[in-house]
Design a protein around this nucleic acid. Structure first.
Lengths: 336, 336
DNA sequence: GAAATGACGGGAAACGTTTCCCTTAAAGTC
DNA sequence: GACTTTAAGGGAAACGTTTCCCGTCATTTC
């Protein structure tokens, strides 16, 4: 069942059918009704491949996600899809393995599928400006900050100020009297990752309060409970006098909390703990965990909005910074 | 840069370029090398739309997921994608909103994109056999059991035996001396959902041990911590003598645990609790939660295997039942 | 030495759309 | 009344592939 069949059955030309299903051009109401009736009756759905081929552009948006296991992204993904679908476009969600170059992956996809636009979510970004320029379609980096030597007019982004928010969390702990604050995040070898930036905020807060930075308080781990658990155990074995833990994600925080609790330490009695992201699980952990809560859904929505503004040419590349909030649930306490 | 350009630059015909990039037909090594050099040099990637149009079939697999927020599915999604990519195919992940008919959605996608195959994951299934027959491509239901009146030769599935596993969990609690066992799951109005089947297993265990079924011990909730939390609070306010909770998902179990703990009850001191799925968070909860652990990744892998066997015609529709394991972590204790 | 075979590769049709350009007829415009 | 304009819709080219069918040439086969 193709457009030719519909045309024949409706007694009109192919072009007219096309005009009807795409709502373009001028078609009389009577003809339109006739065609639509046939379309409905035969449950006709236009062949997307043919359409995209002809238009040399598909209406598909690709979402490249690194770290899909982190629940924080799950809600964002849902929102991105909702927003994209709202605009009549299908969303191609592509999970990018750790270590895979997402721009290359996107490039391939774009060429192969004539994508409309791309949203990158999660992961780390140290791609060169040249690399960015190779992407021939609009794209938005969500949750991703690039290295500073990339011309901001080359890309769009929706982010939080990692340094500032991390500074906020650390300062909060310091204000409660903590000095030996453990920091857990992922530090890949590339520069300017989320982990690195949050480390900068952590260090900034320490320095500002005259606390010496102690590298042995910093742990490298994946954004997962198991990894946070292991890293915390390791750190605790070396340093006995830790009074607070700042984890760069709630998933890590949960692992860290488990490590502390299973060693018989109480939260926040013995050790205070604060996470990052604002996933549901952190609230339902026992004790509920304090966190720097990111407006993930809003960020997802904004990403799609910016992307479509770019696609329709309504605006140029844009950089939006969202504010996170410090959510206190009682897993941090004042000491001394 | 299209196949014609590559042909021109390589000094060969279009057909030959096609043969080279698809590894079909007979091409001399020297010609192949010549063409490949040009392909590499210009970073040529064939236009998927044109290819799919011509072949009237794309190599894309669609994964229709309901309940993407449940971390249990996250790892399964990753595995599905890995397995599909391993076979050289892209995966289109489509999140299906609650209440949306996933078969219709898939049907649309299949027609529009000439899909290769579809995997359905999560959600509930009470589609008619006729509906299933409408899907013109191979498909596999993962994590989904259909109503019994559908001819098994019409579809493939990868499931666990919900009734049996639920029976296992309930029996375990009963064997520990529990009588007032609360059961939490989602009960949509449709028949034969995951929640309904697990309820059957729960009831079966009760009956077998001579315990009267008490509907006021059963709570209806979404598969999320917040919903589990609310449902548990509600139940506890009505029934004071609950000694155990069996949640149909770990996410619910976490919410339930939080409800118990925040009311000052201890786990497993006052109330024992067991979940379902085997997500990482359940292990890192404090206390670590017992659960019926499903082999999600294996199931994901099996789904893709079955799907590709169907696609290549290597085998007929197949139904695989995986075994879950009861993981004891100490959140259930013997009473009396 | 003629015929058959097989390796290799080219030309062109076809996949199902969109869209440009054209025709027709009715309605305005002066 | 002759002209232009406009609504409506049809024909056909083009998008970039794959693949069928065919031709050429070298090698066997008898």
């Amino acid at each position: 069942m193709n457009i030719k069949d519909i045309a024949k059955l409706s007694g009109v030309g192919i072009a007219t059918v096309s005009r009807v299903i795409n709502n373009t051009g001028i078609v009389s109401d009577i003809t339109r009704a006739k065609v639509m009736a046939v379309v409905k009756e035969h449950n006709y759905i236009p062949n997307g491949n043919a359409r995209n081929l002809k238009k040399t552009q598909s209406n598909t948006i690709a979402l490249m996600v690194k770290g899909i296991s982190n629940p924080f992204f799950a809600d964002m993904i849902k929102e991105v899809e909702r927003q994209v679908n709202l605009r009549g476009c299908p969303l191609l969600i592509q999970h990018v393995e750790d270590g895979v170059d997402e721009i290359n992956a996107a490039l391939h996809l774009v060429k192969e599928k004539n994508l409309y636009g791309v949203i990158f979510m999660g992961g780390t970004y140290d791609h060169s400006e040249e690399k960015f320029r190779q992407l021939p379609v609009p794209f938005v980096l969500t949750t991703i900050t690039t290295t500073k030597d990339v011309d901001p007019s080359v890309f769009s982004s929706v982010v939080i100020d990692d340094i500032q928010e991390s500074y906020k969390a650390t300062s909060y702990l310091i204000s409660l009297g903590h000095r030996n604050i453990c920091f857990l995040a992922r530090f890949p070898l590339v520069q300017n990752t989320t982990g690195n930036r949050r480390l900068l905020g952590y260090i900034k807060a320490l320095e500002e309060h005259g606390i010496a930075y102690d590298a042995s308080l910093v742990g490298d781990c994946e954004y997962s409970p198991s990894s946070g658990f292991t890293a915390t155990k390791r750190l605790l074995n070396k340093k006995k006098d830790i009074t607070a833990v700042f984890a760069a994600s709630d998933t890590i925080a949960i692992g860290a909390a488990k490590a502390l609790l299973s060693m018989g330490l109480s939260i926040p009695g013995d050790v205070s703990i604060i996470g990052f992201d604002g996933i549901e699980m952190a609230e339902y952990y026992h004790p509920s965990l304090d966190t720097i809560s990111q407006p993930g859904v809003d960020m997802a929505k904004a990403s799609v909005e910016i992307l479509f503004d770019l696609i329709t040419g309504q605006s140029d590349n844009k950089h939006t910074v969202f504010e996170s909030v410090l959510v206190k649930r009682g897993s941090c306490r004042k000491i001394n």
